[in-house]
């Protein structure tokens, strides 16, 4: 247990450090750029205005809003202070809504869509990969190229194809939104039904995308494990093949947890774009709307929230992994 506490402590420290760096980057990156965000925004807001003093007025207002008239260190502490209060500023495009309001109404949709989809895709992919490694021969010959091809279809491509086939051509599922546009969110049965029917296509497009990559990874991992010495040894002690395959799957699957933790950052990018294709009311669509409307505070907040979510998931996966794989525990004893 001592080893585990050390592991946990290390991971927690790491989580805090990356979080701090992420916040700093989120603050610094836009300010490092040659174009001053305030003047860029003012330029957009003041389009068509001829009165110089009015433009100046707008500039002043946003300068105060951003606090860019203060020294950069002070700006940073104001930024962090506001962050702790949950204040992410005011949206430009949906003025006077608070950014935190917009984000909190979107974040649930994203979590409920992406988390189950990624987990299901991960499980199915691992299962297929393990089967391919174990059965080999024909199954492997067909499945692997297909998985490899599928894993190379970009997430938005899969989303569009599913949308066109099931939504437009066969009209099995609705193609846009998180629920029917004429409904008001509530806990009634018709509303839940509508949510589920809108859920299918985005869900399956993310699942299909994650299956391919996971299956390919799991297959090579399983082949590697099947050739391990313990497999041979267990066989020569008379243990049944089926039981040994159980050992192999477990051992191959555990590192896949870390694999998931490491790839989640990449996967989320594709999954967010899939949301845009389906106009799903999550963070991806929020980000898209923010980019199109040049809503600077909203973009900044969305990217920050997505980063925090990814860091949190990575952290949790690391912790779970430490619990379930004794190899990690042993490695801690060595340190």
């Amino acid at each position: 247990m001592k080893g585990y506490r050390k592991y946990f402590g290390k991971k927690l420290l790491w989580f805090v450090i990356t979080l701090v760096v992420a916040v700093i980057l989120n603050f610094v990156l836009p300010r490092l750029m040659p174009a001053d965000p305030v003047s860029a925004i003012t330029g957009k807001m003041a389009q068509g205005m001829t009165d110089a003093s009015a433009v100046q007025e707008i500039y002043k207002r946003y300068e105060a809003e951003f606090g860019t008239n203060k020294p950069i260190v002070e700006q940073f502490f104001i930024f962090v202070g506001n962050l702790f209060k949950g204040d992410l500023g005011t949206s430009f495009s949906q003025y006077p809504r608070k950014v935190s309001d917009i984000i909190s109404s979107a974040i649930g949709w994203t979590i409920c869509l992406q988390l189950p989809a990624i987990i299901v895709g991960w499980l199915l992919g691992n299962l297929l990969g393990a089967l391919a490694a174990y059965i080999r021969k024909g199954f492997d010959k067909v499945l692997m190229p297909v998985s490899l091809f599928l894993s190379n279809v970009p997430a938005f491509g899969m989303a569009v194809i599913l949308l066109v086939l099931f939504g437009v051509t066969w009209k099995i599922a609705p193609i846009a939104g998180g629920y029917a546009y004429d409904m008001i969110p509530n806990f009634s049965w018709p509303f839940i039904k509508s949510v589920i029917s809108h859920y299918q296509l985005p869900f399956f497009s993310i699942v299909l995308i994650s299956i391919g990559g996971q299956a390919v990874g799991m297959r090579s991992m399983s082949i590697y494990e099947l050739n391990a010495d313990y497999v041979k040894y267990a066989r020569f002690l008379g243990i049944k093949d089926r039981k040994i395959v159980g050992y192999v799957f477990r051992n191959a699957m555990l590192p896949q947890v870390t694999g998931l933790a490491l790839s989640i950052g990449t996967m989320i990018g594709g999954a967010l774009v899939a949301e845009i294709i389906f106009s799903y009311p999550g963070l991806g669509s929020t980000m898209y709307a923010a980019v199109t409307a040049a809503d600077y505070p909203l973009i900044s907040a969305t990217t920050l929230i997505i980063t925090i979510m990814v860091l949190l998931v990575t952290f949790l996966l690391d912790i779970i992994y430490g619990f379930i794989d004794p190899r990690v525990k042993a490695a801690q004893f060595d340190v």
């Binding site: 010495d229 313990y230 040894y233 020569f236 002690l237 050992y247 051992n251 555990l254």
Partner: peptide, 24 residues
Amino acid sequence: RKTILGTEIAYIPQAAMNALNPTQ
């Protein structure tokens, strides 16, 4: 497998370092 291996004849492999399943 059932009646001979382990009971009549047993084997100690070359690489005992990796002979045991690491997660068991």
